[in-house]
Design a protein around this nucleic acid. Structure first.
Lengths: 131, 131
DNA sequence: CTGTATCCAGGACGATACTG
DNA sequence: CAGTATCGTCCTGGATACAG
């Protein structure tokens, strides 16, 4: 029931009245944490196995397990168990996960493009503090 | 050490070897927390004052203060103090902040568009658990 | 109004050990 | 190899009180 969001000159989404805001906040905090993003990122390149991701990301078993399970529950990641011995489990993105990759990549690209902008800002800010 | 990333059909960024990964992770965890995103989001609509944001976002003074300071340090948010009494402080996005809005909006839009996809996945997943 | 300082509860997260 | 369980720690973040 947002009544009117007029159109901004730039790409403002039609969201401001608390309601949806909360939902977005929810999804974002679910999927917006450090590890979720990194996992999505990695999986965007292709299938990976459990320990492979563990090594690659430098994440603890615990967090990897928890985060993967959450992402699977949210339908972003697909888990495939090969009942061999020793067991082998493949993780991939689902279609939903892949669709999520685009905004994630957008953020990653922005981060990459603006690393030094940010570093410069920080340096300037810190310098200004110790006058 | 998977070295080859061939060219994906979709928009995979040229990042995988730990190095940059770490930097991205850093920026993302800095700016990827719940409040930073929400603040950027709100400020994308225009100038806001301290208490205005506080009420609007339902955030504690402490976190608002901390997050704003961090965002200012990173050069995403501009703080303008009007030396009146009582004091009035305006917060706006900088150019860098505005450029960051786009990926943020992209994420927000995705979240909005896929809320029910996620809800459905969760329901299905939870149902499958209690067989 | 715009903050800073303090305290404190709860969650995030890593380390370690153990199972299938 | 792929996890689960347990424990301890640190940090996040809210509530509250106080200051300019």
């Amino acid at each position: 029931m947002p009544k009117d969001q007029s159109q901004e000159s730039h790409t403002a989404p039609a969201v401001q009245d608390g309601q949806q805001c909360d939902r977005i906040k929810e999804v974002l905090s679910r999927v917006g944490d450090r590890w979720s993003v990194m996992i999505i990122f990695s999986l965007g390149r292709g299938t990976m196995r459990f320990n492979e991701m563990k090594r690659y990301l430098g994440i603890s078993q615990r967090m990897l397990s928890l985060t993967l399970k959450a992402l699977e529950r949210d339908g972003l990641v697909q888990r495939t168990l090969h009942p061999t011995v020793p067991p082998r489990v493949d993780y991939d993105l689902t279609d939903l996960g892949r669709s999520f990759c685009e905004p994630v990549y957008a953020m990653g690209r922005w981060a990459l493009d603006n690393l030094d902008n940010i570093d410069r800002s920080r340096a300037a800010y810190d310098a200004a503090q110790e006058d």
